[in-house]
Amino acid sequence: MHAHSSIETKETQNIILPSTPHMQIKDLNVYIEGTHILKNINLDIPNNSITSIIGPSGCGKTTLLKTLNRLMDDSKEVKVTGSVLVNGEDIYAKDAEVTHIRKKMGLLSQRPFPLPMSIFDNIAYGPKIHGERNKKVLEQIVETQLRNVGLWEEVKDRLDSSATGLSIGQQQRLCLARGLAVQPEIILGDESTSALDPISTQTIENLLIDLKKDYTIVLVTHILRQARRVSDYILFVYNGKAVEFGKTEDVLINPKNPITQQYVKGFIS
């Protein structure tokens, strides 16, 4: 088991990517309350593409995703070692500015979480905290981002009403628009469609596929069909280790590692 994964870790590094990596994860280890959760992860995440992180539940997918956004290390008893480079800069460097790092990445969580304010303010919140005060500009941003996620026509007459009045699917698109409004470079999604109906799921998936021309996207999912539908690359995580990384069809159709083979065939879940 141990021997296997160390071989695989090497292989993952050797894959030649067609584009330059946007993020590089180097020797990443995460410990929560003394338990070793993520074990020596090394990975290059290519830009302008969708990378899916797959693996059985509890294997560390969410932890890995939150580590990319520095959301892990301010909860209690969490220790992170190694580095994550974004455009070559280590976000775990001593002088790294956390708010600045997070602004570069939009997070789409498992369930939509509108802020306790109006639809308009949900989108305008990000630009506002980053200093945008001009009402005209804010209005423009809100309209653009709502159009981006195909929500404008549905909500343009009730921008001042509470975001919680929207359907779950609409809320999730609102959350995506809210993230895009701070002009991130990277979109992180953690099983972002798991609470949605099939139609909303498809809408979000299509949006993400659309967005990858402008953004680097990392998605956590445990639905293999979804990974197949949307992703260009797949990382298979098992028991806190990066077992296999490669192009979607390689990992799903011709996995090299026996554990990946078993997972893809549905023997492990």
């Binding site: 939009g106 969580s109 905290i129 993230g179 992180l188």
Partner: peptide
């Protein structure tokens, strides 16, 4: 926790997050 993560991941400072929590 998700609500705190929302504001944080939008780049909010602790104080800005605190204001949303108060709300």
């Amino acid at each position: 926790v998700d609500l705190k993560n929302v504001t944080k991941s939008l780049g909010a400072t602790t104080w800005e997050t605190a204001k949303v929590l108060i709300k």
